[in-house]
Amino acid sequence: SRDGVVDLLDATFFAHQSPDVNRARLVDSVVEELAEMEMLDDGDGNGRKDRLTATELGSAVSRQYVTPVTGARLVEGVQTAARMADENVTELTALEIICDTPDMHGTYLGNRERAAMYRFASTHAAEFTTDLGAAENFEEWLCAVKLARIFADWTAGESVEAIVENYRIGPGDLEARLERVEWLLGAADAIADVVNADLPVFREVRDRL
């Protein structure tokens, strides 16, 4: 229940550090947001507003250990990909979806890379779930495209040395991000099952990592 969550927060270090925070209002805000994401049933529709229950989607997101915002981004990307023509759903589609999430640590885009990455994005626009002109934060999205391109090169057999040289990313950073790619591809695949999207591309790309 909401009261139960507030009681739990009251016993945390957060409550000790933030005595002026209205925790009941904070819980209401989070519950509302999770309900909008369809990850939480707040009981409003069945007259049991005090009872909080995770939805099937919410349970799946929790089991994958991704944040709710990442879960919502994955749902949006998966559902968009499911509406795309089959021939346009490629490895890049799967990689763009997972790279454009908060749980994928971003990268930087050098001035000399920006034009080349824009040309790459334009060339492969049909394979992406985000339209070039509709990206909420174009620079951030272009960084996600850069990561998607890096991982596509990796699955194609490009060496670590070549990727480091071509994209100015450290070997350690590459290794750390590859671990995240595998994790997020698995999460996207699980979420695709929950929303009944037939997208084996996530498993296929994960198998090639």
Rank of each mutant, 00 (worst) to 15 (best):
A121N: 05
S122F: 03
S122R: 12
S122T: 13
S122P: 01
S122V: 10
S122C: 04
T123M: 04
T123W: 07
T123R: 11
H124D: 02
H124N: 14
H124T: 11
H124M: 10
H124Q: 12
H124V: 03
A125Q: 12
A125W: 00
A125L: 06
A125D: 08
A125Y: 00
A126L: 06
A126K: 12
E127P: 05
E127D: 10
F128Q: 04
F128S: 10
F128E: 00
F128H: 03
F128M: 15
T129S: 12
T129A: 09
T129I: 14
T129F: 04
T129L: 03
T129C: 10
T129N: 04
T130H: 03
T130P: 00
D131P: 07
D131M: 03
L132V: 02
L132Y: 00
L132P: 01
L132N: 07
L132I: 11
G133A: 02
G133D: 08
G133E: 09
A134W: 04
A134I: 09
A134Q: 14
A134H: 10
A134F: 04
A135F: 00
A135P: 00
A135K: 00
N137R: 14
N137I: 04
N137P: 04
N137M: 06
N137W: 09
F138L: 13
F138K: 13
F138A: 14
F138Y: 14
E139R: 15
E139F: 13
E139D: 14
E139N: 15
E139W: 05
E140V: 11
E140P: 05
W141D: 02
W141F: 14
W141K: 06
L142R: 04
L142C: 08
L142I: 14
L142Y: 01
L142V: 08
C143W: 00
C143H: 07
C143V: 08
A144D: 01
A144S: 14
A144V: 04
V145H: 01
V145E: 01
V145G: 02
V145R: 07
V145Y: 05
K146P: 01
L147I: 07
A148G: 11
R149C: 02
R149A: 03
R149V: 01
R149Q: 13
R149Y: 02
R149I: 02
R149N: 10
R149M: 09
R149E: 05
I150V: 13
I150M: 08
I150S: 03
I150G: 03
I150L: 05
I150P: 01
I150Y: 06
F151Q: 12
F151N: 06
F151R: 07
F151C: 06
F151G: 01
A152E: 10
A152G: 07
A152I: 00
D153E: 13
W154Q: 15
W154H: 13
T155S: 10
T155W: 01
A156V: 02
A156I: 02
A156M: 07
A156K: 15
A156G: 05
A156Q: 12
G157H: 06
G157M: 08
G157T: 06
E158P: 00
S159I: 07
S159T: 15
S159E: 09
S159R: 12
S159F: 10
V160M: 13
V160A: 11
V160K: 15
E161W: 03
E161P: 09
